[in-house]
Nucleic acid binder design. Sequence first.
DNA 1: TTTATATATGAACACATACTCATATAATAG
DNA 2: CTATTATATGAGTATGTGTTCATATATAAA
Lengths: 120, 120
Amino acid sequence: MKEVKDTCDCRIIHDEKVKEARLSALDEKVTDDLCQTFKALGDPSRLRILWALEHQEMCVCDLAALLGITESAVSHQLRLLRTLRLVRNRREGTILYYRLADDHVSALVGIALEHVREPR
Amino acid sequence: MKEVKDTCDCRIIHDEKVKEARLSALDEKVTDDLCQTFKALGDPSRLRILWALEHQEMCVCDLAALLGITESAVSHQLRLLRTLRLVRNRREGTILYYRLADDHVSALVGIALEHVREPR
DNA sequence: TTTATATATGAACACATACTCATATAATAG
DNA sequence: CTATTATATGAGTATGTGTTCATATATAAA
């Protein structure tokens, strides 16, 4: 018969590294907010919307025509982007014109473009 | 009886805007690469891994201990990050030490942090 | 060789999510 | 008021994804 295993089989090779990582770790709320922001940019429809709004303000039905999806789908995505403060809108009659809320999206996309275009 | 509807009910209010957006649109391959990169950063486990590696190189089992998930899960995520050229590793005996591949991750996280910390 | 350790990989599953459709709301025109 | 248009919202659904478990591989030691 073999020895009884330790109940916790989490191996930690470098204890100090793990401790240090815990100390400098982001708190859960910030981690979650960051993830939501990156996740928002990680969907083709939303990224195309944001890219389009980087050049000009557009309304829901134009974006729907551009992407080839329903206006409902666009509206759902824009609500998410609004919640994350990535886009803003202004009303003109019944039409809502959407635009980027600040420069962060452009900056993020710029760096990511650098990365994916980097020769391997 | 009502009139028969147009078979295509895609409304386009601003035809020029849509045309211009099509012209300046990213091609599909680049869009997809960008999305994969952002999606990689949009998961809490992967983001915590990247954040930890920003401060020091770490091995799989240490990362597993840090995150409280299995080494298998960490390994799966690291493979994804490797594929996207976000992390690299070096072998020392049986241990693989992972580190960030370049400065893009730090830059991306930095800007995203600015965004989520911005007062609303 | 055999054994142990660190990591990788494939399958299965539970949960998340992006879409469409139907319906509701908001603003304007008549 | 009613009708129309632009957008928003809720439900349902098909697809995607992050995890664990079991197993395979790789390096080192005995």
